[in-house]
Design a protein around this nucleic acid. Structure first.
Lengths: 247, 247
DNA sequence: CGTATCGATATGTCTATACATAAAATCGTA
DNA sequence: TACGATTTTATGTATAGACATATCGATACG
């Protein structure tokens, strides 16, 4: 897992066109604290004359800053540095295969169990689906350099994702397959910690009672549940990187 | 903690100006999979005639989609739906006081220890600072409805954040104070799980050996370390919400 | 056959202008 | 003074046109 910025991104020294120059000038003043939250940014026509350009150019810079949530624009009042109420960071979650490969380690995948069945009450609750037809239930294990890395327990709604019926989860991890084949609009994650029970300990090759990081992820497309997954990692750390502060 | 989208955000049914209409039209096609990754979006002048508007209007819609990382624009070639290689989600981390208040629970704060001292070798390593002068070391406990919620162990670089010397951490949690007073440009998070040792168990009022979620956060401004903090939560879940898929 | 050049083309930036719209500020009147 | 109508103002959206620039593809050349 890795966290990186969004909010317009820290530009990679693009050749500074004028509007970009204006944008990073303002960004710099905000990020250094020279213009604190609540500060009114100079009016567009002030920036026009300061930079000797048209209002459209200034406006483009301000629009991007607004889209990035660094400033707030209010008609008649002006533009203001946003008051941060949250730390905001973009979480980039690679699928586990890509994550392990990116670390330069060899990826291993093992399908433990895969069944297609009509959804029972537990499945429906887990997916959050009202009525539900068939589901695919998958249990599998990911390993890095032949050491267990995570175990995965997943449910896929076959009505919402009929293409999944044709996928071969014996050879391709379901997370990778879904990431590359199924667009989604919303996801929700819950992070928690548990201690390994006998089964988890055996699958992860750790001691019973050892700490595990748990990630539960639910994914929807337009409010329709697609999949629910629980990932269990041995307690060691997963890194996230964030940039910028946010509103 | 709560995760929400960036990438332009799921618009709250803004009155649909033309460029926004174009934007959400394209967004819809991407998100439903009608235009899969790699698909070439109609050329700007095709969209111009389809919507009967000027190129600037079309371009504004595409620019926002590009800033949101949903598409990639290439000169001469056209604009293309981005190939998702990551799940992308915006992590919004409220400071703990705000987080607990938002849940409608009463917030309690208890300063356990606070000292100002020259940085020792351990402090420097932890902050990642080369040379370092003074630091503030803080240990404190947050509670919700009088139940321990998290314990915090923090180091603040006083040279980088001299204003911190004047803050009163006996009454205001350091996370809240920093969030509202100190702009930052980069942060890095590590999430892991441990089992409570005797000290943590006592502070959190849980059993020794019970699982704890650990978040280590380092924060910088322009590559200069500002603060390092370790938060220890009892194992129950922390929710995150993400939207859209990303590149 | 491989390479250099050049034209066509789609996006990238910018201008000058116009009108719309939301909201602050002012004024006028009850 | 209080309240409602009017004016002012800064942003929001949109246009038409201009030139810049990257790059694909074709043509010409060695």
């Amino acid at each position: 897992m890795s966290l990186a910025t969004d909010r317009g991104k820290l530009q990679p020294a693009d050749k500074p066109t004028l509007y970009k120059q204006i944008r990073i000038d303002i960004e710099r003043r905000i990020l250094t604290g020279e213009w604190p939250p609540g500060h009114r940014i100079p009016f567009e026509h002030e920036l026009m004359s300061r930079y000797g350009c048209s209002r459209m150019t200034v406006s483009k810079a301000l629009s991007e800053l607004a889209q990035a949530d660094l400033i707030e624009r209010r008609r008649k009042a002006g533009s203001f540095v946003r008051r941060p109420t949250f730390l905001s960071a973009v979480l980039k979650i690679a699928d586990i295969r890509a994550e392990i490969s990116a670390l330069g380690r060899s990826y291993g995948y093992e399908l433990i169990q895969c069944s297609r069945r009509p959804a029972n009450a537990t499945d429906r609750t887990r997916l959050g689906a009202g009525k539900s037809g068939k589901v695919i239930a998958i249990a599998c294990r990911h390993s890095a350099d032949n050491v267990p890395f995570a175990i995965e327990d997943r449910l896929i709604d076959l009505d919402a994702v009929p293409e999944a019926a044709a996928a071969d989860f014996a050879t391709e991890p379901p997370g990778s397959w879904l990431l590359h084949h199924v667009p989604w609009t919303e996801a929700e994650h819950s992070i928690s910690a548990i201690v390994a029970d006998e089964q988890a300990a055996a699958a992860l090759d750790i001691a019973i009672g050892a700490p595990c990081l748990v990630i539960d992820r639910h994914t929807w497309r337009s409010a329709r549940p697609l999949t629910a997954v629980r990932l269990l990692y041995p307690g060691e750390s997963h890194k996230l990187v964030a940039r910028f502060r946010g509103g």
